[in-house]
């Protein structure tokens, strides 16, 4: 709990600093950063995924996304390497399945979408507070206030948010919202989870999913890598992954800290109120010391000549 208090304090002090020029409204404190106890998540068991792309098709239909470049039963997409990398979510596809070829075993397929972090970096980086972590666990955003600065794309440790660059009049951030509007808020299973023939994904409370995941690791010794990706990464994510191959081999970023991304920024945020509080006195003091006993020709019009040369 001390964490929450500290964060609230931080947000408050930063807001306070802004208040020097203009007092922000109560809305400024709306950023809800703490994890919700009953937040939902999805457990993704990569050992089950066969790369059928049904989830991609389901997402496209549910979110009314534009027509894809290729049919969803076209597996040549697995060989695509835009910029030499595997595919990633874009403004037209909120989720993608990639194939990661292995040297010793069969290829591993992995579904990528927003991981719905407990403490989302996108949310904490957004200067118009467009993002929201809902009590149901989804990280959603308000496209009516998005300015298009793309800071969230910088901040997201999973490279998830995309941006509708192609739009001239209303370009905004585009990303998976956990089917919040159409399903999650009514307690329904997200479209991708429902469409999966292999039950790669298990929907449920994050707390319970963690239990299920560890039970699977225990029950099938040697089947899984003994790690639940997302349990601790960047403060924990709503979507959790089990894998038979080391996560690095399945394209995961394994160098992420367990601390939320915002913790890195706290050092700086903490000095903000200090500078605001100390600098005025410090520099006015310097000024008084430096100019003590000297004439200072303010208000004298163009009076530089009157002042002493050092």
């Amino acid at each position: 709990m001390s964490k929450i208090t500290r964060r609230k304090f931080l947000a408050g002090s930063v807001a306070g600093s802004a208040a020097i020029a203009m007092a922000p409204t109560k809305k400024a404190f709306g950023a809800n950063l703490e994890g919700f106890p009953d937040g939902m998540g999805v457990l993704v068991d990569l050992t089950r995924c066969v790369g059928c792309r049904s989830c991609e098709a389901a997402c496209n239909k549910e979110q009314k996304l534009p027509e894809p470049d290729k049919s969803f039963d076209d597996f040549s997409v697995f060989d695509e390497r835009p910029h030499g990398e595997h595919r990633r979510p874009t403004e037209k596809t909120y989720t993608v399945v990639n194939r990661y070829d292995q040297t010793k075993t069969e290829p591993v397929y992995r579904k990528i979408q927003c991981n719905h972090c407990n403490e989302p970096a996108c949310l904490t980086s957004c200067f118009v507070n467009a993002y929201k972590k809902t009590p149901e666990g989804a990280v959603i955003y308000n496209d009516k206030v998005c300015v298009g600065c793309r800071n969230c794309m910088i901040a997201c440790p999973f490279n998830i948010p995309a941006f509708s660059y192609s739009s001239a009049l209303n370009p905004i951030i585009k990303k998976c919202i956990f089917c919040y509007d159409t399903r999650l808020k009514d307690g329904q299973v997200p479209a991708c989870v429902e469409s999966c023939p292999q039950q790669v994904m298990l929907f449920g409370k994050r707390k319970e999913l963690i239990r299920v995941a560890h039970a699977r690791i225990r029950r099938s010794p040697g089947k899984y890598v003994d790690h639940l990706y997302g349990e601790n990464e960047v403060g924990g994510t709503g979507w959790l992954y089990l894998s038979a191959v080391p996560f690095k081999e399945a394209g995961f970023n394994v160098s992420l800290p367990n601390e939320p991304i915002i913790n890195n920024v706290k050092d700086f945020l903490a000095i903000v109120p200090m500078v605001l509080a100390i600098w005025p006195a410090l520099f006015t003091g310097f000024h008084l010391l430096s100019t003590k006993g000297k004439s200072h020709g303010h208000g004298e019009g163009h009076s530089h000549e009157e002042q002493e040369e050092h």
Partner: peptide
């Protein structure tokens, strides 16, 4: 900016005070 006409949003309309960019903007 994607929507430059919304540049003033963090000043007057929708505040994200815990964001570094909010400080930069202000």
């Amino acid at each position: 900016l994607g929507q430059p006409w919304r540049l003033a949003y963090p000043m007057v309309y929708s505040f994200g005070p815990a964001a570094v960019l909010f400080l930069v903007g202000w």
